[in-house]
Design a binder for these strands. Sequence first.
RNA 1: GGGGGAGUGCCCGAGUGGUUAAAGGGGACUGGCUGUAAACCAGUUGGCUCUGCCUACACAGGUUCGAAUCCUGUCUCCCCCA
Length: 399
Amino acid sequence: MSNVTEEPREPGPDAVASAATLTRTAVEALPEGRLALQLDQGRPLRIKLGIDPTAPDIHLGHTVVLNKLREFQESGHQVVLIIGDYTARVGDPSGRSDQRPMLDPAAIDANAETFMAQAFKVLDREKTEVRYNSEWLKMESDQLFSLMARPTVARLLERDDFQKRMAAEEPVSLLELVYPLLQGYDSVAIDADVEIGGTDQKFNLLFGRDMQAAFGKPLQSIMTLPILPGTDGVKKMSKSTGNYIGVTDPPEEMFGKVMRVPDANLEQYWQLLLSEDLPSGAGPNEAKRELGRRLVERFHGPEAVPGAEEHFNRLFVRHEAPEDMEDFNLGEDPVHLPELVADAFGVSRSEARRTLKQGGIRLDGEPLPPEPLDYPAKELEGKVLQYGKRQFFRLVKGA
RNA sequence: GGGGGAGUGCCCGAGUGGUUAAAGGGGACUGGCUGUAAACCAGUUGGCUCUGCCUACACAGGUUCGAAUCCUGUCUCCCCCA
């Protein structure tokens, strides 16, 4: 692969110990034992994380790697955050079962903005070098060809996700095939010592080494971290599956979503999101509450915590209406209930009728009967209309 | 350029002329239960002026008493050969 290898020697005990600490929650750190040797050099290492700003929001799943970077920062290393403004246009095929559309530059810029704002709630801004990969990837085609000259198609096709897609007769675009070259070249461009990513990034991370070798650079080591399951406890957390907790979610929502994480995933959540073990002895309810408090504190500040928890207690423990709810204007005088519910809660009238039949619509806490469907406005005015357990409106007289 | 295959409800996926708004699963929603919006159980899941009516199985036509199911054209996608 390369002549650029570091002279093998025994790392000192301190290096071994801190490598052990840093890899504690990692799934793999490759090559085996390499990180300890790097740490033993006694200089700050350059820790690379590349993120493609393909989605406008980031969620807790993204923060798993950020936490790890933070750990590196705290032990004195240099974090290099690469905003993949260029690679985002290509689309990372990792773990995907289908192609993703190319994004337009304006959306990418906006996404990058919000990403960074959120990322620095975890990372220490002072100790983070931010780079955009368009800086070096926007290259002449002859330069691009030189990148493409070395890797072989067979090597690129090895990866699991492509194998599966091809076996399933699904398309794989040429652009996707080339993606690892670009990500790998990022490592060349910034002289990465260590690159971090989710387990789904393993191929790309390892490929960075190939690219570094091709350009005569020292090879990075890689660390993969577990993928955080979403609030369903099974699938990878992602916006598209709707099982995510967004870092910009309002405090009440963030706390509430944490409370619905399956008990079985609690330990994992503690380790990956707080870098701590689940406190022993605490019941799942309390452990979830504590996790929720800490996360709300991290992303919204300590002052947001009591309100968020109280909101949860009110709605889901005591089953009371929230403190403040929005007003909804009653329309014409005989109020047609399906219409009212449909307009207020954004469902179809048929759906409103069904929910009504199932006893899911309440007025001041009392379930409404399936009949009648029409009410005089004055019977409803000032009362609280509730759809299911969690949606409320105060009914007011139309303007 | 040639050959083959596929397009079904939020998603996956049955269905190949007749009680079909379309099996099953997932998701979502509602109710019960509960320490939680966990788990578990039950129900609902095209629209509407709702004991009925309307619109639906890529799109547009056609055959038929009757089509998601047959025919023609269009579009989109996949695979293979060159």
